[in-house]
Amino acid sequence: MKIRLRVTAAAMAAGPLAFGLAGCGETGQPSGPSGPATGKGGMKIGLLLPDNHTPRWETFDRPLIEKKIKELCGNCTVEYANAEGDVATQQHQVDAMISRGVDVLVLSSVDATSSASSVEEAKEANIPVVSYDHLSRGPISGYVSFDGRQVGRLQAHALLEAMGREAANGGQIVMMNGDPSDPNTVQFKKGALSVLKGKVRIGKAYDTVGWRPENANVNMSGAIAALGADSIDGVYAANDGLARGVISALKAAKIKPLPPVTGQDAELAAVQRIVSGEQYMTVYKPFRPEADAAAEMAVALGRGEKLDRIATSKVSGPSGENVPAVLLTPVSATLAHIKDTVVKDGMYTIKQICTDKYKAACDRAGLTP
């Protein structure tokens, strides 16, 4: 009881915002009841996602996780909150969910280091935490994501392939890495550099705070000014949002043809850029198996079960402990793979991709309903 009272006091000190955000989506409306869960297996699971400027979180991850939880546990409820890219907001949301008595937290952290205190609070309240997509600091109970180094390797191999002769001649690239506070960024970068080093010259490399496309745009404009518009043979962009910012800067500088640009997450806009020839590739990470694994972990932990049946891998936690993990395999998706990846898996339909703006490009690519 003392633990519950201490956490409640912390949430109250954070102000009304902490309670208002718990269980709320973008609209601020509750996404789950505030009363105690009832019935066999009727637990409350908190779901906290990091931002709303990356489309995947609201479009795929949230609904898929909520759906799987309901399939596994009909009496379970999901308390949802999106931090909108703000560390303090997410900390308040965790406090509020603890005070409301959730049984398990599924957390995709805004900042892995800053999340450590929140994860520690959850542990003190006997609430296990599943770290989702981003490896959070602190005493997490499980981790679900994709092999980050393999993501970087796929991006780098695709970039070299697209550069062709320029790569063979030691061409010059710009690296637009992700947020330096995100452990995934480190893994993506290590994977990419293991392929790129010794093959191409890295003219400029940037860490992009907040994974924000506008920051990538500013950085790319700086790279163009420093290196020259005609001397950039390719761009490693760590995800599709950064690719969007990069391509906008390249187009503003009137660079034609555009150098190949990588990406990640298979956002609809990125798939359309691949169809139109503005972006060379994206890394497709099937969201359903990732979401399903997180839901399975959360329900199992809420029932007091071990994760051995679900988690077949281990990752090293911040204190060196072995954390049960599900590490999934990413897929490289260029124009030739659109049908066999995002369309085949039902992520998007041809109709969604091939709007009027992209119809001619789709026709040339053989993307027809």
Rank of each mutant, 00 (worst) to 15 (best):
N52E: 12
K199Y: 08
T59C: 11
S145K: 03
K197F: 00
S34G: 15
G138Y: 02
A361K: 11
V94P: 01
Q187M: 13
A122D: 05
T334L: 09
V299L: 05
F188I: 08
P55Q: 07
E321P: 03
T341V: 03
G320A: 00
K190M: 10
V326M: 07
G148T: 11
F146H: 11
S332L: 15
T312L: 12
S34T: 14
T368C: 10
T262R: 06
K254Y: 00
P33S: 15
Q90K: 04
I98E: 07
D147Q: 10
K254S: 13
C76H: 07
K68V: 09
I247C: 01
G164I: 11
G320I: 08
V174W: 04
R309A: 15
A167M: 01
Q172R: 15
G25T: 00
I232W: 03
R153L: 03
V235M: 07
S136K: 01
V174G: 01
G74H: 10
P50E: 06
I247V: 12
T38C: 05
G241I: 08
L307V: 10
Q352R: 09
R212N: 14
R137H: 14
L159D: 02
T329A: 12
Y358S: 08
G222P: 04
Y206E: 06
E278C: 11
N217S: 07
E278A: 11
Q93Y: 03
H337E: 15
S181D: 12
W57D: 09
D61Q: 08
V331P: 00
A243S: 14
L301D: 06
M220G: 03
E58K: 13
K314V: 10
D363K: 14
G25K: 03
A14M: 04
R62A: 13
A18T: 07
G142H: 04
L47P: 00
K254F: 09
Y348A: 04
A365T: 05
A360C: 11
R153I: 11
A360V: 13
R201V: 09
E66F: 00
D182H: 05
K190G: 11
G263V: 02
P36T: 13
H92P: 09
A238T: 10
S276R: 12
Y348V: 09
G20M: 12
P318C: 09
L48K: 08
K204D: 05
Q91H: 10
A333K: 01
V94G: 02
G170Y: 07
M176W: 05
K251P: 04
G320T: 10
Y348F: 15
K344P: 09
A9G: 05
S136Q: 07
N239L: 07
E166W: 02
G245Y: 03
